[in-house]
Every structure is written in C-alpha cells, then in structure tokens.
C-alpha cells in the first residue's frame, strides 16, 4: 500500500502515537482485568494461591465456552439465545446415551447433539429470515421443552458403575488444572485460530459487518451463519458436559439463563453487538472478568447480595469505557 502520503504531514512520533492509541483501544479491557487481578492479589493473601487459581479457571470454563460461542455468533451478526437450552438438552442426551453404551460414547453423542441442534437453530433462523433474537428465543423454548420431555422432568444420572468415569472432567490433569479447564483452553485456542486465521474467519467478520457486501463478494451468508450456530452448539454441549460431570447428573433446568451471562461476557470482553468486530480472546477476558468478581466477593468475604449489582455496574463500566476509547481514536 502506498504509505507515502500521510506520513509526509506527520512527525515520526505521530505514527507511534497512533499505534499506541490503537493498542489502548484494543486492549483497554485487558488493562481492566490486570487491575482487578492486582487489586485482589494485594488485598487478599488467598487469591494468588495455586488452589484458588485452579478453582478460578475451572469456574471460568463453562461461561468461557458459552461466551466463545456467543462471540462467534455475534461477530457474524446473530445472537444465539438457545445456548443454555442446547447445553441442557445435549448434556441429557449425553447421559442417556452413556447409559446404554458407555460414558465416552455418551460424551461424543452430546457433542454431536450440540452440533446438530446448532445446525437446526441456524437453519431455522436463516430459512425463516426472522431476526435471530426472536428466532433463537423461540427455538430455545422448543429445546427446553424437549429436554423436559426426554427426562420427564426428572434428574438423569449415569449408571452407578460408570459414575466415577463420568466425573472425569473434574479430575486434575496437566499442571494441576482440571480436565475441564484443559478442554476449555484447547477449544478456545482452536476457535481463536479458526476465527483469526482462516478464510472462514474472514467471511465471518464480513457477513457480520455487511451481509449484502459479503453476499456480493460471493460469500454464502446463510451457511456462514449456520456454521456459527453449529460452533456455538458444540461449545454449549461441551459446557453442558462440564456441568453434568461436576454434578454427576443432568436435568432439564440446567444453566437456565446462562446464555445472557455468556452474551454479557462477550460484550464485556469488547466484542461489538453490532457485528463485524470482536475476537475469541475477548470472550475469554470477559468470562474471566465476570468470574473474578464472584471469586473476589468470596475471598474478600463480602456479602454476595451485592454481587449482582456490582456485576451489572461492571458491565456498564466496561462497555462505556470501550466505547469511549474507540470514539477517541476516531
């Protein structure tokens, strides 16, 4: 690209300043995270213990996976409100299939169910042409209803003989982290690469930023959306397995309402709800921030009745800050 025009009018430091400004805008939310981490490290002596950190990451895994799915959907310009219903339904399917085959097959079945449910959600939204917010809201009711039907409203358990294996996601693994954490980190890393490095990722952003321009560039807008919903479905299923593995059971009311927390985490991380912008690592940061607040409340011994209020304020703060930083560099 010809770089000879603007710099003519700008001093060399100006270029650096501009790059710095870009960075501030991009990484403001990371700074917020670091500040909270430092504050907690200083004000408690329990925060920086390996036990607490392992615990913290384990707690982040579920919301982190959901936030990643939400982020990918939001980048492409759709919302997936089925996330928690998909989570419950695929976890139940996982447990039930596990009962008749074995635990591993059951887990695989859960993931496949998540992908299929995502495919259905996506197809419904794309084919009907309904706004994704409404379309997925309705679909999520159907999924929850199916979960109730499948379980008869009861809690489902794996067979007693395999109950221990079923709890494997809670087991300690590499570096003393739980298996759930490892799985979460691996999945997020893969998706981060998919979104930032592949042609699919490029198309995802284009579709979310300007669907018509994307279509006229030869992109199949519908299949990009369906794929985004499928990824979100798989993330939900994995999150469902973690929850079920922890509880040793699954039920139709699992994780109810968590799709909104996931969207909140995505947005706190700095992904624009307008679509076409955002990143997977932001989902991670957003999920960590929300989890940290809960953790901080525990460690500081604060009354948890204030937690929701503070969480709400934090979301407002993060989003305002993000807007402000972006505006300043425009």
């Amino acid at each position: 690209m010809s770089v000879d025009t603007l710099p003519k009018t700008a001093a060399p430091e100006a270029g650096n300043m501009s790059r710095l400004a870009f960075r501030m805008r991009d990484y403001g939310i990371v700074a917020a995270l670091v500040i909270i981490v430092i504050a907690l490290s200083v004000s408690t002596d329990t925060f920086l213990t390996s036990g607490n950190l392992v615990n913290l990451l384990d707690q982040t895994a579920v919301i982190g996976l959901l936030a990643t799915g939400a982020t990918i959907c939001i980048i492409s310009g759709v919302f997936d409100l089925t996330a928690s219903a998909t989570l419950a339904l695929s976890a139940i399917i996982g447990v039930q299939v596990g009962r008749v085959t074995d635990v591993y097959v059951g887990m695989l079945a859960a993931v496949v169910a998540g992908a299929l449910l995502g495919f259905v959600t996506g197809t419904v939204v794309v084919r009907s042409g309904v706004n994704s917010f409404v379309g997925t809201l309705a679909t999520s009711m159907v999924y929850r209803g199916l979960a109730v039907m499948v379980t008869g409203g009861a809690i489902v358990y794996p067979l007693t003989a395999s109950a221990e294996t079923f709890g494997m996601l809670t087991w300690p693994s590499l570096f003393g982290l739980t298996s759930a954490t490892i799985m979460f980190v691996v999945v997020v890393a893969i998706l981060a690469v998919v979104v930032s490095r592949t042609t699919f990722g490029r198309r995802l952003y284009a579709v979310g930023g300007n669907a018509e321009a994307a279509r006229l560039s030869g992109i199949r807008v519908g299949s990009i959306h369906v794929t985004a919903f499928m990824i979100s479905g798989v993330c939900s299923a994995l999150a469902g397995l973690i929850l079920a593995s922890r509880a040793g059971s699954a039920q139709s009311t699992m994780a109810s309402g968590m799709e909104l927390t996931a969207i909140a985490a995505a947005v706190v991380g700095g992904t624009s709800i307008l679509g076409g912008e955002g990143a997977v690592w932001r989902a991670l940061v957003g999920a960590l921030l929300l989890t940290l607040i809960g953790n901080g409340f525990n460690l500081l011994g604060w009354d948890t009745i204030y937690q929701q209020v503070l969480q709400g304020l934090l979301i407002l703060f993060a989003v305002t800050m993000d807007r402000w930083l972006r505006k300043r560099t425009r």
Partner: peptide
C-alpha cells in the same frame, strides 16, 4: 457503504474479500 465495503474491517481485508 451499502453493497461494497465492510466499513469496520481493514482496507486489506476488504480488498482481499472477494
């Protein structure tokens, strides 16, 4: 604005898109 470019994406991404 409406049919051609994805305004919030980079120059390079836009040019490479098709």
């Amino acid at each position: 604005k409406e049919q051609g470019l994805v305004m919030q994406r980079s120059v390079a991404e836009n040019v490479a898109l098709s």
